[in-house]
Amino acid sequence: MTAGGDGTARAGRLARAVLRRLGSAVLVVLVTSTIVFAAVRASGDPLEAILGGPGSQTSAEAVARARADYGLDQPILLQYLGQLWRTLTLQFGDSYARKQPVADLLAANVPPTLLLATLALVLAWVLALGGALIAATARGRLGRAVRSVLTGIETVISVTPHFFLGAVLILVGATALGIFPATSSGAAPAGLVLPVLTLAAPIAGYLAHVMHGSLAEADAAPFATTARARGGSEARVLLVHTLRHAALPALALSGWAYGSLLSGAVVVEALFARPGLGRLLLEATLVRDVPVVIGGVTVIALLYVAVMLLIDLVEPLVDPRRRAAPAPSGARA
């Protein structure tokens, strides 16, 4: 295959990947908005949020006017279709409870959550790679003991709930040692340490566990044996060959990990009194603020799809085998 043909094939694969992810985005938005609409409406009448809560004293005329203004007097199917259209066009309207455009609320609360989740994913990867390198370089009887301890730590930390881990970190880092603040009100580095560590630790344990198994397989693979036969040192074989292959399964899981971090932000932001999308969603759910809940969930779904698309673009850079399409039978080199 010529260089031009190879470039065209790569461009075609990239275009298909983008279109596939865009289709996934539309499907995810439809499914999530449907589930959220049904769940929030099943929990009660959203008119309470519009009128200021269950204890508000409102006349029958005001109730009827509010139902008409927000389309709540229409059949439930028409309400659902209208909400679906507004979601697909990203027109979420105004918050029932806050009386503000949902777009403004999202613009103010999405960046802090993105910062928190992105830093947590980076830290999770650093911790996972560190654990994998320690396990790979440990040799002999001591090495087996080190790997057993690391495996135990990874297993425990990967199943530890965020609220429990965050509470422990607050007790140790804020109350006992007084090093970090117990609340996080912005992007101050000290205030970010405990929330980021709370989010990152379980994901790091899971990624490291996956990487250890892949690293053992890669270390016994023929390409590693060939690299050693050519005179490559153990450090070079690890850093240049086996570690890259071991990172591929963990890289494929990074999209799931980022989605898990965004959902975990609901607990972490509430625990550390930190502003963000997770805390906004929690408060909106409690008062049945449908536009805010659907807007927030839609943004999270779109962010997840965007991260998966980014991973699709990065994986060929890490794994050369994914760069070239298989040549047709009989094609000339």
Rank of each mutant, 00 (worst) to 15 (best):
L47R: 08
F37R: 08
A39C: 10
G52W: 10
I35Q: 04
L106N: 00
W85E: 04
A108R: 13
V102H: 00
G71D: 07
I50L: 15
A103R: 10
A49Y: 02
Q100K: 04
D94S: 05
S59C: 05
T87M: 03
A66G: 05
Q100T: 02
T58D: 08
S56R: 13
P75D: 07
G93N: 01
G44F: 11
G93S: 00
I76M: 07
K99Q: 09
P101V: 05
P112I: 11
A103D: 09
R67G: 10
L72Q: 05
S43Q: 13
R41C: 08
A60Y: 06
G71I: 07
L88I: 12
A107F: 03
D45H: 07
A97H: 05
P54S: 14
Q57N: 13
F92D: 03
N109D: 14
S33D: 04
Y80C: 01
S43L: 13
Y70M: 05
D69M: 08
L51P: 12
R67V: 14
G82P: 07
V36C: 12
R41W: 12
L84N: 05
V102L: 01
L51F: 13
L90H: 02
N109F: 01
S59T: 15
V102P: 00
Q100S: 03
A68K: 13
V63L: 11
S33E: 06
G55R: 13
Q79I: 06
P46Q: 03
A68L: 09
A60I: 11
E48A: 14
D94E: 13
P111I: 10
L51A: 12
R86I: 00
L106R: 00
S59L: 04
A42R: 11
R41Q: 12
P111Y: 10
T87R: 04
N109H: 12
V40C: 02
G82V: 06
K99W: 00
R98M: 07
S43D: 13
R86L: 02
Q91D: 15
L47I: 15
I76W: 11
I35D: 01
G71A: 06
A39M: 15
G44Y: 11
S95W: 04
L88Y: 06
R67Y: 12
T89D: 03
G53N: 08
L105E: 11
L81Y: 05
P111A: 09
G71Q: 05
G55N: 13
Q79K: 07
G53A: 06
A107M: 01
R41P: 00
S33T: 15
L88H: 08
I76Q: 05
P111G: 08
A108Y: 03
D69F: 09
Y70G: 04
A97C: 00
S43M: 14
I35Y: 02
R41H: 15
P112G: 07
W85A: 07
L106A: 03
L72M: 13
L47M: 14
Q91C: 00
S59Q: 06
A62T: 14
L78M: 12
Y70T: 07
D73T: 10
A62R: 14
G44Q: 08
Q57L: 14
I50R: 08
S59N: 02
V40H: 01
G71C: 08
Y96N: 02
L78W: 11
D73A: 09
A108S: 12
A49N: 01
K99F: 00
Y80M: 01
F37I: 10
S59M: 06
Y96T: 03
